[in-house]
Design a protein around this nucleic acid. Structure first.
Length: 682
DNA sequence: ATAGGGTTAG
C-alpha cells in the first residue's frame, strides 16, 4: 500500500483538508501528530492548513454534512475515515496514533475497510498519501457527531489549538493571520478576532479581501454600522468594494443594521452576482420586513439562471409566513422537495412556521414529526404554531417534550409558551412559565414576554392587574402593549381604565388610529354617545381616517378580499342569498345578534344588517358557496375576532358542518360544531 | 493553505 516515497510539503495541506472535511477531530489530531513526527511542524503551508482544520472543527454543523460525500485526496481517491481505534495523540505532541479505520472509493471495487497500525499514514515510515491505494465502494461515509464541537466550550478549546499552532510558527503570512481571525470570528470571540486584525497591521500586513469579509459579519452581529462603514471605506480605498465576498458581507451587514437601502446600493454596484450575493439581498429584504421586495429579488435570481440553494429557501420562506400566502409557500415547498432540500433543519423549520402561519397546523405538525432532528428553533416554531391556533395544551406538552429531550428553551421559546397560555386563559401556567424563565433560566423578560402576560390578564378581565403589571415593567411600555390592554377594556367594557390607557398611548403616539377607534367603541358600548361623537370629530379634524375592517379568503390561488357591506364582488348576489339563508338558520338555532355596540344613530333593523354584512361573514359565505362540502374554510380578518363575530361564526360552523378557521392579526380560531378551539378567550 | 448568505418573537 505504501510506495515509500518521502512526503514533500504539499502532502500535509492536502491531507489536512481531507481531515477538515471528515468532521473527525481525532483523525485530524493523529495527522497533526504525524506532522510533528515527520518534522513538518515548521512548514508555513502545513501550519496554515493545520490551523484551518482546528478552526473548522468548531463551526461544522449538521447542515454542512449534506454537502460532502467523501474526502477528495489528490489522485482522485476519496478517503473515508471510519474510526480511530485508540491512542489519541496529545495535541502538538509526539504522535501516538495507533490505528484508524478508513476506506477509499475507487470504481468497480467492493466495499472494504482498511486497518492501519500505528497511524493513518502507515507504521511510522514515511508514507506519501498520494500513492496510497485503497479499493472500496463509494457508500462509506463516516460522521462523528461527538467531534462536532458546537458548544462554546468546544469552540474555545479548538481555538486554543489554533492559537498554539499560530504561536509556535517561525514565520507567518497573510493566510496565517486570516485563518486565525476567521477562526475567532466564527467561534464568537469577536474581540479576539479584532485584536488579531490590529496585531496583523502592526506586523506590517495589509488586510485583504479575506480579512474584510471575515470581519464584516462581526459588525453585522454587533449592529455597528459605524465600524461596518469604516470597513466599507477601507474596501473602497483599496479597490475591494466590488469583490464578491466583501460585497455579500456588506449587503448583509447593512441589512442587519436595518440599512437596507445601503444593501441595495452595494448589490447594484456589484459587477457580478453569485448565489450568495443574491441570497444576501433576499435575506436582507425579508429580515427588514420588505417581503414583496424579497420575492422580487428571488424571482430575478431565478430569471438570472442562478440555481437557488438551501439558504435561498430558508431566507425567502418567512416572507410567505408573514404575508400568509399559502399558495406561494406551497410552490416553494414543491421546489424544495423536488430538489431534495427537505431534510435541512433550517428549511424544515421555516416550512413548519409557514404552514402554521398560513393556517394549516396539521401539515406543519406533519413536517415537524418527519424531521430527524429537532433543534430549538424547530421546537419553537411548532409550539408557537399550536399556540397561535389555540391548542394551548398541545403547545404546553410540546414544550415539556422539548425540555425532556434536552433542548433548552431560550427566550423565544418562552414567548411561544406564554402565547399559548394567553390564547387559552391559563393564568397560573403563564405565571409559572414567567417566573421559571426569570429564576431558573436567567432570561430577562423582553417586551414580547410582558405583552403575552399583559394580554392574558386583559383577556381574562383582570384589567387592574394588567395595568399594574405593565406599569411595573423594567422597560418602558410601548404603545402596542398599552393597546392590548385598551382592547381588553373594550371587551370588558371598562370606560375609566380605557381612558387612562388611551392617555398613555396618546402621550407617545398622538395619531394612533387604532387607539381612537377602540376608545370610540368603548364609549359606544357604554352608551356614552356624546364622547364617542366628540372623539370622531376630533379624529376628523386631525385628518385621521379609519381603515375599514377587511377580510380575505384564498381560493384556488386567488385572494378574494371583502370589506363590510362590500357589494363589488362578482358573486355578490349569490353571497347575499347565502347570507340570508344562513341568518335565518342561525336565528332558528338561537343566535341573537349583539347590536348594542354598533352605531347608536342607526335603526335597529339597519344595525342587524350592518352586523350581518361584516367582512368576515361575506368572506365565509363566499367560501361556503365556492368550495365543495367538507372543505375547511380559512379566512383572514384584520381585526380581533371577538364578541358578536365570535358567536356568529360558532353558529355558522354548526349549521354548515364545516371547520372554519379565522385568523385575526396573528391568532387562529378553529370553529367546529359550534365550538371554538380557544374557548371564549378572544 | 484562508473568506461571504439561512429558520423561531402578541
Amino acid at each position: 500500500m505504501a510506495s515509500g516515497v518521502h512526503p514533500d510539503h504539499n502532502v500535509f495541506p492536502s491531507v489536512l483538508k481531507s481531515s477538515t472535511l471528515s468532521v473527525d477531530l481525532r483523525f485530524g489530531e493523529s495527522v497533526h501528530a504525524c506532522i510533528v513526527r515527520l518534522g513538518f511542524h515548521l512548514d508555513l503551508y502545513t501550519n496554515n492548513a493545520l490551523m484551518n482544520m482546528y478552526a473548522k472543527f468548531q463551526s461544522l454543523d449538521m447542515s454542512m454534512r449534506d454537502e460532502f460525500y467523501g474526502l477528495e485526496v489528490s489522485g482522485g481517491h476519496k478517503i473515508y475515515v471510519h474510526e480511530v481505534l485508540d491512542g489519541i495523540p496529545e495535541r502538538n505532541g509526539d504522535g501516538q496514533a495507533k490505528s484508524v479505520l478508513v476506506s477509499c472509493n475507487e470504481p468497480n471495487t467492493d466495499y472494504r475497510k482498511h486497518r492501519f497500525e500505528e497511524s493513518v499514514l502507515g507504521s511510522g515510515d514515511n508514507v506519501n498519501l498520494h500513492s496510497v491505494e485503497l479499493p472500496c465502494s463509494d457508500g462509506a461515509r463516516h460522521v462523528d457527531e461527538g467531534s462536532c464541537a458546537k458548544t462554546n466550550n468546544g469552540r474555545r478549546l479548538q481555538m486554543d489549538s489554533v492559537r498554539k499552532v499560530f504561536e509556535q510558527m517561525p514565520t507567518r503570512d497573510l493566510v496565517s493571520w486570516n485563518t486565525v481571525i476567521v477562526g475567532f470570528a466564527r467561534s464568537g470571540l469577536f474581540e479576539e478576532a479584532l485584536k488579531m486584525v490590529r496585531e496583523m497591521r502592526n506586523a506590517n500586513l495589509k488586510p485583504d479581501s479575506f480579512t474584510l469579509s471575515s470581519v464584516l459579519p462581526i459588525f453585522a452581529e454587533y449592529v455597528d454600522v459605524i465600524k461596518g462603514k469604516e470597513i466599507h471605506g477601507y474596501a473602497i480605498r483599496h479597490g475591494l468594494d466590488t469583490d464578491l465576498f466583501i460585497g455579500s458581507s456588506l449587503i448583509d451587514m447593512y441589512a442587519k443594521c436595518t440599512r437596507v437601502e445601503d444593501s441595495h446600493r452595494v448589490f447594484g454596484l456589484l459587477p457580478r452576482r453569485d448565489v450568495i450575493s443574491w441570497n444576501s439581498i433576499i435575506a436582507g429584504c425579508v429580515q427588514n420586513g420588505m417581503f414583496d421586495e424579497g420575492l422580487k429579488f428571488f424571482r430575478q435570481m431565478l430569471l438570472a439562471k442562478i440555481k437557488p440553494r438551501h439558504v435561498s429557501f430558508s431566507s425567502i420562506m418567512p416572507a410567505c409566513s408573514h404575508m400568509t400566502t399559502l399558495h406561494l409557500g406551497k410552490q416553494l415547498h414543491g421546489y424544495i422537495i423536488r430538489n431534495g432540500y427537505d431534510d435541512n433543519v433550517f428549511i424544515a423549520s421555516s416550512l413548519v412556521d409557514m404552514y402554521a402561519k398560513c393556517g394549516n397546523i396539521r401539515i406543519a405538525r406533519c413536517i415537524f414529526d418527519k424531521m430527524e432532528l429537532h433543534d430549538m428553533v424547530s421546537w419553537t416554531s411548532i409550539i408557537m404554531g399550536h399556540a397561535l391556533h389555540g391548542y394551548a395544551l398541545d403547545a404546553i406538552s410540546l414544550f415539556e417534550q422539548m425540555e425532556k429531550e434536552g433542548v433548552k428553551a431560550n427566550s423565544v421559546a418562552f414567548v411561544a409558551a406564554l402565547t399559548a397560555c394567553s390564547h387559552a386563559g391559563l393564568i397560573d401556567k403563564a405565571w409559572s412559565y414567567f417566573n421559571s424563565m426569570t429564576r431558573n433560566y436567567g432570561i430577562v423578560p423582553g417586551l414580547e414576554h410582558y405583552t403575552a402576560v399583559a394580554d392574558l390578564l386583559g383577556r381574562a378581565g383582570k384589567l387592574e392587574e394588567a395595568y399594574e403589571f405593565i406599569s411595573s415593567m423594567h422597560i418602558r411600555p410601548t404603545g402596542s402593549i398599552w393597546s392590548t390592554l385598551l382592547s381588553a377594556c373594550r371587551v370588558h367594557k371598562n370606560v375609566e381604565l380605557a381612558e387612562k390607557v388611551a392617555e398613555k398611548i396618546f402621550m407617545t403616539d398622538p395619531d394612533n388610529i387604532g387607539a381612537y377607534i377602540l376608545l370610540t367603541n368603548v364609549y359606544s358600548a357604554a352608551h356614552r354617545w356624546k364622547d364617542a361623537v366628540r372623539l370622531r370629530i376630533h379624529m376628523r379634524n386631525k385628518g385621521l381616517k379609519k381603515t375599514p375592517a377587511c377580510s380575505w379568503i384564498e381560493i384556488k390561488n386567488t385572494v378574494h378580499a371583502f370589506a363590510a357591506g362590500d357589494e363589488s364582488h362578482p358573486c355578490y348576489d349569490k353571497i347575499n342569498e347565502a347570507l340570508n339563508v344562513l341568518l335565518e338558520r342561525m336565528e332558528q338555532e338561537g343566535y341573537v345578534p349583539e347590536t348594542k355596540e354598533v352605531l347608536h344613530d342607526v335603526e335597529e333593523e339597519q344595525k342587524k344588517y350592518l352586523l350581518h354584512y361584516h367582512s368576515e361573514r361575506l368572506a365565509i359565505a363566499f367560501g361556503i358557496i365556492s368550495t365543495p362540502d367538507g372543505t375547511t374554510i380559512r379566512v383572514i380578518k384584520n381585526l380581533r375576532v371577538c364578541g358578536d363575530c365570535h358567536t356568529a361564526i360558532k353558529f355558522i360552523s354548526k349549521i354548515v358542518h364545516r371547520e372554519i378557521i379565522v385568523r385575526d392579526n396573528s391568532r387562529f380560531h378553529h370553529f367546529k360544531n359550534g365550538k371554538c378551539s380557544c374557548g371564549d378567550y378572544w
